[in-house]
Simulated scan of single mutants.
Amino acid sequence: MAVRAVVVEADGGSRGNPGPAGYGAVVRDRASGEVLAERAEAIGTATNNVAEYRGLIAGLEAAAELGATEVDARMDSKLVVEQMCGRWQIKHPGLRPLAAQAAALVGRFAAVRFQWIPRERNRHADALANAAMDAAATGSAAGRPTRDAATKRAGTDPATTPASWEPRPSDTATRLILVRHGETEFTEQRRYSGRGDVPLSERGRAQARATGARVAALAPAAAAVVSSPLSRCTATARAIAGALRGTVPVRTVDDLIECDFGVWEARTFAEVRAGWQGELDAWLASTRVAPPDGESFTEVAARVARATDALVEAYPGETVVVVSHVSPIKLVLRDALAADDAFLHRLYLDAAGISVLDRWPDGGVAVRSVNDTAHLAAL
């Protein structure tokens, strides 16, 4: 029997961005909330945004097969929602054919309404996407639910990037200059410093000034400076922006904030080891485990990937300075290098250290430097 009004919840992701990718989609009856269809698939190597679009397409296809006439499409990808609503331009050439495919599907319904929802309200589709990513990472077939017809595979992904030693033209890449904020009292005392707004110390302010001079030498005409909203980052970002050529305002991006360390916030590493031995061991063993009342690194990686994807989309061929914290920057570098989670514990990032990577429209990535601290030698 045809269903008149449905809700499509869709998600997608990549372990590496680009990396092993997959999507998930759920179709629900709008009145009862009953799950009518589920779709998920591993799609090989792709970016987060490509996987998100593929999830939307799969959900719309399932809704059409069910005979729906009205669709409420809900996603936690602001980029996809804004582009499908026509409020954001689609600059990434790899996304345009996917957006066109989704738009063609939209035309098959009497009405489609797009809505951004936070990730915690998209858990069903997120879980399907994560299972598909696990399958992509192991090279196995995706464990697709069987509540409806199997998802159709759509050929070669436009964001798949074959391995190559061939030099790429740097003028087509978006260069991200990743800067960890300067020191704070918590940095010096080796305390967990997450969402608490701890200001720069005197040494941290000197580091920020030195970092500004170094970034100005690397990219005097940077197009933008974006920052975590916490003051230790915004103060570092302002010092950098002030050293650049022309007027470059500092814009804050909430997704660049540090991991929420929950009840461990402001405690020393030794205090956490003494009071939460089991929880700490579990956290160190898996990026999916969160500190008590906190946030997992898997969650941090997802939101930071959204932020950097949006920057690559907004500033093609330009340089953007990103001022953030140790955990977000480590996760960006882990994904850029296609490393496993052990990388997070083996990489050290100094306060005010600089890392540089390039990202191309087809998903190509080149890491040019990691934790450059030469500018701090005289302090």
Rank of each mutant, 00 (worst) to 15 (best):
V7G: 14
V7T: 09
V8M: 11
V8K: 13
E9L: 02
G13A: 04
R15N: 13
G16I: 01
P18S: 06
G19D: 01
G22Q: 07
Y23W: 10
Y23G: 11
A25W: 08
A25C: 09
V27Q: 09
V27S: 03
D29Q: 10
A31G: 14
A40N: 02
E41Q: 14
E41C: 15
A42I: 06
A42V: 05
T45P: 00
A46V: 07
N49P: 08
R54A: 07
R54F: 06
L60I: 09
A63P: 12
A63C: 15
G67Q: 14
T69W: 09
T69V: 08
V71E: 13
V71P: 12
D72S: 15
S77T: 11
M84K: 11
W88T: 04
Q89P: 13
Q89M: 10
K91L: 14
P93D: 11
Q101Y: 04
V106N: 13
F109R: 13
A111T: 14
Q115Y: 15
P118M: 05
E120S: 09
E120I: 08
R121I: 00
A136S: 04
T138N: 03
T138K: 09
G139N: 02
S140M: 11
A141C: 00
G143A: 15
A149F: 15
T156V: 10
D157H: 14
P158A: 12
T160G: 00
P162C: 10
W165S: 14
E166L: 13
P167N: 15
S170F: 14
D171C: 10
A173S: 12
L176A: 11
L178K: 06
L178A: 00
V179E: 00
R180D: 01
T184P: 03
E185M: 14
F186I: 08
E188F: 03
S193T: 05
D197N: 08
V198P: 07
P199N: 11
R203E: 03
R209D: 08
R214W: 03
A216R: 02
P220G: 12
A221Y: 07
A222M: 01
A223I: 01
S228A: 02
P229T: 02
P229H: 09
L230W: 02
A235W: 04
A241W: 07
G242P: 03
G242S: 06
T247G: 12
D254T: 10
L256Q: 03
G262H: 06
W264E: 06
W264P: 04
A270V: 10
G275K: 10
W276S: 14
G278C: 01
L280P: 12
L284S: 11
T287R: 12
R288H: 06
P291M: 07
P292I: 03
P292Y: 13
E295W: 00
S296P: 06
A307Y: 04
A307Q: 08
T308P: 08
L311C: 08
V312D: 07
Y315Q: 00
Y315G: 10
E318Q: 15
V321T: 04
V323Y: 11
S327W: 12
K330L: 05
D335N: 07
A336K: 09
L337F: 05
L337M: 09
A338M: 03
A338K: 11
A338N: 10
D340C: 07
F343W: 07
H345M: 11
L347D: 02
L347S: 01
L347A: 06
A351L: 01
A352D: 02
V356A: 02
L357F: 01
G364L: 07
G364E: 06
N371E: 06
T373D: 03
T373H: 05
T373I: 08
A374C: 01
H375I: 00
